[in-house]
Design a binder for these strands. Sequence first.
RNA 1: AGAUCCGUAGCUCAGCCUGGUUAGAGCACUACACUGAUAAUGUAGGGGUCAGCAGUUCAAAUCUGCUCGGGUCUACCA
Length: 1177
Amino acid sequence: MSAKYREFSGLNLPAFEAEILAQWSEKQAFEKSVSLREGATPFVFYEGPPSANGMPGIHHVISRTLKDLVCRYKTMKGFQVKRKGGWDTHGLPIELGVEKELGITKEDIGKKISVEEYNQKCREAVLRYKDKWDDITRKMGYWVDLNDPYITYHNEYIETVWWLLSELYKKGLLYESVSIQPYSPAAGTGLSSHELNQPGTYKDVKDTSAVAMFKAIRNEKSEFLFKAIETGGSIDHTQIFDLKQMLEAKPQTSDTFFLAWTTTPWTLPSNLGLTVGPNIDYVLVETYNPYLHVPVNVILAKQLLNKYFDLTGIDINSIKTGLKLVSHLDTKKISKWKILAEFKGKDIEGCEYEQLIPYEANSPKVIEEITPGAKPFRVLVDSFVTTEDGTGIVHTAPAFGADDFKVGKKYGIGILTMVDRQGKFVDGLGEFSNRYVKNYKDDPNYVDVNVDIAVKLKKENRAFKVEKYEHSYPHCWRTDKPILYYPLDAWFIKTTAIKDRMVELNKTINWKPKSTGEGRFGNWLENMVDWNLSRSRFWGTPLPIWKSEDETEEKCIGSIEELNSEIRKAAEVLGGETNKHYLHEGILDLHKPYVDEIILVSASGKPMKRVPDLIDVWFDSGAMPYAQWGLPDTSSNQFGPLSAENFFKYHEASKTPPSEGLGEAVFPADFIAEGVDQTRGWFYTLHAIAALVFDSVAYKTCVSNGLVLDKNGNKMSKRLGNVVDPFKTIETFGADATRWYLITNASPWDNMKFDLDGIKEVQRKFFGTLYNTYQFFSLYANVDGFAFKEKYIPLKDRSEIDRWILSSLNTVVKKANEYMDDYEPTQAGRVIEDFVDSHLSNWYVRLCRRRFWKGEYEQDKICAYQTLYECLETLTRLIAPISPFFSDYLFQNLNAITKRFDAASVHHVSYPSIDETQNPPTGGRGAIEESLEERMQLAQDASSLILSLRKKVNIKVRQPLQKVLIPALNASMKKQLQQIEELIKAEVNVKEIEYPDPGNTIISKKIKPNFVALGKKLGPKMKAVSAALAQFTQEDIVLFEKEGQYNLSIDGEPVILQIAEVEISSEDIPGWTVANKGSLTVALDITVTPELEAEGNAREFVNRIQKIRKDSGFELTDRVEVRVKAANGLKDSLAQFKDYICAEILADKLEFVPEIQDGTEIEINDVSLNVIVLKKG
RNA sequence: AGAUCCGUAGCUCAGCCUGGUUAGAGCACUACACUGAUAAUGUAGGGGUCAGCAGUUCAAAUCUGCUCGGGUCUACCA
């Protein structure tokens, strides 16, 4: 007895997976899947490092499934795919976690706890959940090398990061500058955007807001405004409501003011500019100061007139120059005003104005000292200005706003910081000097300086409107005090210098979906600003820059070796205690506080200290393509000093043998995948560093997956308690079902609503069906001892249905390859799913069941086995990337018997491709026969229609019927139908099929236009022709078909229709029971003759006996004897089909007896009878 | 505020790029059937203003514009 295919008692995916996991680790299946491809073309994949100080979630499972399936697929396609794992270990979340755990705050660092201890705690916390991550990685079937991961806090990693920074430094792309950052005066520290996004930081507060009046200076630029005032505006007579008043109008003053609104009056002493929108409409308005009632002329955005002026009854868009109104008294808004001129923002660019609040501290002299050459107090133009609030003119204090800073820099207006780091005004600001701009000290007697400033402005005819304004403003999450935006020193990477190159390189990247790359990412690149690297933290990569105290000299370190040599040099030059702890072994840890203890020496012999900043952790992860390998050994010096050009060459050369090393084989990546939230994170930092240092893309294809939401479409969060535990999910449903669900439910880049019921469905529907099909196969294959020992039977010798399922299979193979190559696993999975369900299981297996259990083990049966086996085996390989466990399980169970592959795992074999060696008898490529697939579809449709008819008239399938009519619309359709006639007949239990020819008159026909063809030809006449066709009689249609064309008259114009321009289908066959679908029509003869009824009875009888056999527990092959006590009518039916019955039920004897003891009572078509079935022997 | 994705049956999704006249599938529900794949399967049925409005067109779920709703990222502003 030969070995048998394993059979199972039930589908238990988690149990199968546990078995496979044990096997994988025992056989080192992953390692082997890589080593087996030694020497093959590499497919480069980068693992985006997760942070292991939090638990993995279900959203990690989707992106990792995506990564895994692509890597597995590429491996099966013959590439060598190395997957080095990695961990992101620096950054604020880790610091915060440690602080929470120790119950300390940032202020305590260096006091209650030393930096050394603190960083030690961080180091310990960093991989806290590593075992959980390793566990989920294993259980979800993610093959990645966890034994040798890159870890961002390791010295070798940091060293490479330093080297990259030093390369940037050498290129002049690393510079120090001020930037405007959120700053908490109360806490005395800058805040990160992350900190600003803590819940509760944005609060609604009421602030004193002021519309300040900046007095315009008359000069060339502003001359047109003053001209307008003198002439009283260019009068538009059609708009004059009151001609008398208009003529009387004389400008009472030439004083003209730009109106600018602020919610932070304390920034006004630092004002250096006014910004307007280039295409915003502004107006010059003659009016009066509402507080002092003195005449003034003011400039503001036209759209915002109604905020200050009474516009009752006026459409703002119809306001024209010259329009004056004196109206409604009952309003808080100003009712006396007149438009003198209208212009665009860009028209007043460069206009100058008088400083609003001049003191010694902000005098032009001081400005010149701080920023030599600055030209302040001008009107600037920038697109960030809106007309949502205020006046459409933005008071610009470069020190206290990012936009202000940017535009200020563009125009060179200088910078004034009239507030110190404690949050109080500096000296030299008169009565405001040394006053806190907000109540940072919880002073109960605090007087709001903003109010005083507003009062001063009011008195001086410099305030147009002052009011309390409620808005949301960010607060420091630790002190609860309002933050302010403050200029702080920071180090930047000049990404803007190579913006165009980055945009260009981006165009070569294959983004999935395209919109992420072109839209979100492309846009981000277009609007890029320089990368602010600085962070004032403790646990992170230190910026390797040392500076002399007078800031005239600095040095950027690019390697440990360089640092150590500089350490020694400084000790020699500076002497004393300098670096004495680092002379012996050099530096052992590149973190704080050690690096900060090191003093270097400048070229001129001055001591230099490290600038205290750490770098943005995103630089860490973006440096991963290089830092994961560390700096190469350059001692051979065969390529010269280390550079971007030879970085990987050295790596390659330093490995033995060199061919196995790292060359082009590691950079750039062929493929990366992460969540779409990484677009401006990892995707960007990878791209930026690669472009800056290596002038290359970092990845050729980037797949970004969407969010995983809960089943109601809400974001998963611990707070809402709707997070899905990936461990539990996988334990309950299996990794395969979870993976399959995640991939096929929606395109990975769409947000997906995660629903456990969906996994259940996948499990039942897809895996259940596949499992059943395998069970079915193994059941009979074991009986017959099929082990694929026989020669492969060529297609031409196989039956129609075998060729059909193989053709379908190959079509699926073809599509799956195309979709996988296109990074569309969702489509691939759906195609496979559909094949398993509607083709393999519900048609092939169902129709072929008999072939497996009936008859001897000869040609046809072997064909059936070979066919089904090929389908199953191919499927296991097709689904292997998406469902790595079950596929391997089935594959191994199949292969264990047939040994068709010399491989321990499905992941070591090749992905199926079309079998070009097969030549189907009717032509086609590989095993694909399109016409065969087409006619099988016809058969399925026809059968489905006939079954629906039987259902309609309530005649069960077991009752044979005589005839079916299927009108063939043309000769080829008839031929197609004839070839599948036997199939249909068997499927629907009908004795004959007739195909009335097109010319027949039995069938009534329907005609409708072929819209695609006719629409182009007829255009507007389409409707009329459509209506005319609907009126056609049967005779008209027959005539049309005979003539091949038809003359119509539409609106008196002749229209000639060709036969190809209409679609004719059969609709009805009078006197028959008819159904149709598309162009297919079937008509069923539902007459049950006595002869047919007898046969129906016989079939019913067979069915009942089979059930008895099964209930009695007989083996499939047991022979039986049957005795029946039956009524006469039934007895005749049975006797008539005795041979048939005996053959079906494996009976050697069928006796009719008058009486039966202990028989089984059965019922056939409402007639009872009694039978006894005895096993022979 | 900007960018981007999404909105089709109770639920999950096709269809949209390339417009064509009965808008599909699965799940769920109901009824029926099948019974040597049986914790499986088939058939039928109900269920839709294709988010809304406007436009282009002989024809719009499909193309264009706007609006609304949801998500995400970035920014945070006088």
